[in-house]
């Protein structure tokens, strides 16, 4: 079911990535690696060194967007931060960002633990709160330093992820011609398909010494319980079987959709979904940022927007589709024709 959030407009989008870029190299002798790189379509990725926290990438994006939009910090009524790599287990990183940005004490601040569907889930959450609480200006921060969760001997995950942060500025115009359409889907039975087994300090998942022990799986991937573990085939099946019908339903009901910004998971998923959609909707464009940024988790949709449109207007309506950890999917339809898209900055 497609739902409507009225009055909310996206004013601007800003992104930040680490300066350091890692190339997905391969040698002629390593056919497996060469094939994997070709299949996932990622040539290089921004990678944060160990001194960079997710909040650093987001803070830079936030300062940039506030300056460029000429927003005063006192005008920000809500800040939501979506991440699965927070600075601390507790407290929430949104509070740290509030302090570093010098936002007023009456700002509503909240962290959400989500990965690849985080941008769209975050947009739905912040827009709903802004509409219902009649908040004027909001910042949606998203980002992750997922590469720090990956074991460098995990042959596929080690090629996939890039690190990035992003901030989207939202304005409550209280004008119903500005609307955000959305729908969402969640299947918690797939919780083990993208998991870090031990990042808890309590209960039965409490971290212990044995969790640091590296183990080899049947595909010769080496990881420990503190590393991210992906069930590629399950995630892939979930994406290609669930997303095309969801997108088709939106395309059938919403006019003038020019762009579909998918979460940048890998090339195979993108090609599969776009080929399903293009059977009926030939003119829909699927922009990509995979080749140069990899899978940047919740920041991948804003990274795709900023890397492709910082000097261009985005005409018509756009679909954002985030999917992944949970397992979860959410889609949002917005009009970005008056949105200011800023060039990606580096730290």
């Amino acid at each position: 079911m497609i739902k409507e959030i009225n009055g909310i407009k996206i004013e601007g989008i800003s992104c930040c990535v680490p300066k350091k870029t890692v190339l997905n190299k391969y040698s002629k002798e390593n056919q497996h690696r060469a094939r994997a790189i070709k299949a996932i379509g990622i040539e290089r990725r921004p990678v944060a060194n160990e001194n960079i926290n997710t909040s650093d990438l987001v803070l830079k994006s936030a300062k940039n967007i506030l300056k460029k939009l000429k927003w005063k910090v006192n005008d920000v009524d809500i800040l939501i931060f979506v991440t699965q790599t927070p600075d601390y287990l507790t407290p929430a990183t949104s509070g740290i960002l509030q302090d570093k940005l010098n936002l007023k004490k009456s700002t509503f601040v909240l962290d959400i633990n989500l990965g690849c569907s985080g941008y769209t889930h975050g947009l739905i959450t912040i827009s709903s709160l802004m509409q219902n609480l009649k908040l004027k200006k909001g910042l949606l921060a998203v980002g992750d330093v997922t590469t720090q969760l990956v074991n460098n001997k995990d042959n596929v995950s080690n090629l996939l992820f890039g690190d990035a942060g992003s901030v989207t500025a939202l304005l409550n115009t209280e004008n119903n011609s500005n609307k955000i359409l959305c729908n969402y889907y969640s299947d918690g039975s797939g919780f083990e398909d993208i998991i870090v087994n031990t990042h808890s300090l309590s209960g039965r998942n409490k971290i212990s010494k044995s969790d640091f022990k590296k183990k080899k799986d049947k595909n010769n991937n080496i990881r420990s319980n503190i590393n991210i573990k992906l069930n590629g085939p399950n995630i892939f099946s979930f994406a290609i079987n669930t997303i095309p019908p969801t997108l088709k339903k939106i395309l059938k009901n919403v006019k003038n959709i020019k762009y579909c910004f998918l979460h940048q998971a890998n090339k195979m998923i993108q090609e599969n979904i776009s080929s399903h959609i293009k059977q009926n909707y030939k003119n829909v464009i699927f922009p990509s940022s995979l080749k140069n940024f990899g899978n940047t988790s919740s920041a991948s949709i804003p990274i795709t927007i900023c890397s492709n449109f910082s000097k261009k207007k985005i005409k018509g309506n756009s679909i954002f589709c985030g999917f992944g950890v949970g397992l979860s999917i959410s889609t949002v339809v917005v009009n970005l024709s008056k949105t200011k898209i800023f060039k990606i900055i580096k730290i």
Partner: peptide
């Protein structure tokens, strides 16, 4: 020589695109 998790993804993809069938990765493995 070549049979890894990427191959499994490619087989799932091939079934979906060419035969409109949902194949489970675990069953392939």
């Amino acid at each position: 020589k070549l049979f890894d998790s990427i191959i499994i993804l490619q087989i799932i993809n091939m079934c979906n695109l060419n035969f409109k069938k949902k194949i489970d990765g675990l069953q392939i493995s």
